[in-house]
Every structure is written in C-alpha cells, then in structure tokens.
Design a protein around this nucleic acid. Sequence first.
DNA 1: TGCCAGGCTTCAC
DNA 2: GTGAAGCATGGC
Length: 272
Amino acid sequence: MVEVEIQQLDLAAIAQSGQCFRMSEVEQGVKLVAKGKFLQVWALEENRFRFDCSLQEYETVWRDYFDLNTDYQIYSACVLKKDRFLQRAMEYGRGLRILNQEPFEMLISFIISQRKSIPAIRTAVECLAQHFGSPIQTSDGTVWAFPTPQQLAQASEEELLECGLGYRAKYVLDAAQKVASGQLDLEALGNAPDDILLQQLQTVAGVGIKVASCTALFGYHRLKALPVDVWIQRVIEKVYHGNFPTRYEKYAGVLQQYMFYYARCPECDFLK
DNA sequence: TGCCAGGCTTCAC
DNA sequence: GTGAAGCATGGC
C-alpha cells in the first residue's frame, strides 16, 4: 500500500470521462486494469490517496499513468476569463487528467468506439480482454489484461463478432494484423511528429481523423491532438461560432477533455 | 420498442 | 472536393 498526497485528482471523473474503458468506480475509489496490471485506488481525506501496490510500482508505473508529474493549473491558467463555457468546464471537471495509456489499447478501443455509447464500448473492450487477453490473478479473483497485438491478430472475424463489434470487427482485425506484423510500428511512432503519427494511424481500415486523434492524445500524450466527436462539434458550433480557438491549440486535447466531460453533464446549459 | 451512440467508408454529384 | 446514405449492435 502507498499513501500519497495529490492535488487535482478526481478518480470518479476520470473513470467517467470517456478516455478509458477499463476503470470502474468502487466505494471511495476506482479499480482498473492497465499495462498488464490490476490496481485499486481509494480517495482518503484532504487530497490523500491510497494505491494498492508497492512504492516501486507506484513510482515506475502509476505516477506516470495518472500524469501526476504535471501541474494541471497550467491548463486552467491559459483559459480566457471571458470564456465562460471553458471556465465553467474547467471548474466542473477539476481533477480530470489525461491518462498515459497504451497506444495499441487506445487504437483498438477507439476503433470500437465509433457509433457506440460509452457503456457499450466498455462491454465490448472487456469482452475482448476476457476472450483474448492473458489472465491476471488478484486478491479479487481473475481479471484479464488487454490483448497484445499478437493475441488479437490470431482471432477470427467470427470470434470478434461475439464481442458485439459488428462492422468494426474487420477494422479491429486489420489494426491487430498491421501492428503484429510490424507494418505499423506503434513504438517507433512514439518518436514521430504529430502529423506523421496521425497519418500513419489512419492507414488502418476504419481509422479516421477522430480515432487517430484519440489514440494520439490518450496513447501518446500528444496534447495538441483534438478529437472532434459529435459533442465537441456541438461545442465548436454553439460556443465558438464554428472554430476551435487558436489560442488553445497548444493544449487542445486537454481542454477538449474538460469540454467533453462538461458538455455531456445534465447541468450544462450552454448547448441548448 | 425505438432511438441513439467519443465515425468511417462509399458513392453520387 | 463536398455531402449524404449505410452500417451492426448494445444500452436506456
């Protein structure tokens, strides 16, 4: 067990924010599977948190995963005072962070995300893990790691259809095969500039600019990547008169995440 | 029961 | 180059 003090970390907000699909809320915290590991985290009093892992694992895995080396005040500080929508969104989503997740898992998860609700994405991703991933034994029972490219590339389209992927099954298979064969080198792309990364990701069938942007943002921490889904499109049209403010370009992905989280909540009345 | 979902591909024009 | 139709299936 590790107990640490962390400013601006809202576990529930992150779990609900639509950037990760294998984190779920438990009493006073979350449980998740990521990077081949199972983790539980609880929120204690006064910005203190308990991580159910060794200090070494916290330092080498989870500190980076939760982006805890970044002071998120730099993001709220760049928001214009007169931008009431984003001011409100940053306040509402305080504690949201951009997780450092695995590129392959992000690519597959966001291929699945197209025309699916967040609960349906979670169900499908969990099904893939249970059918094709490696088991992880925990005190809570068995959970499954997200499949490796090799594990997923061996699946048949029929097997993938059992996870409710529908027409996306062939897209998932194409992605897994391209990565497993080395045709698409996700690790090497870590050193590529943003435009090349986005372009290469879109060589996969069923991957357009939105899925590529989600992969770049959540899997490669490219903070300029701006995924425009139906919600962000509504924000751009209703709040910003058709153009995402150039002032926010540097951190567009981060700010977008606060916009997305706030825009979807019942109390947001900017989009009516 | 019917509608909608963190889009993309295909095909007119 | 732009716009609209079609897509499989789960969740509410």
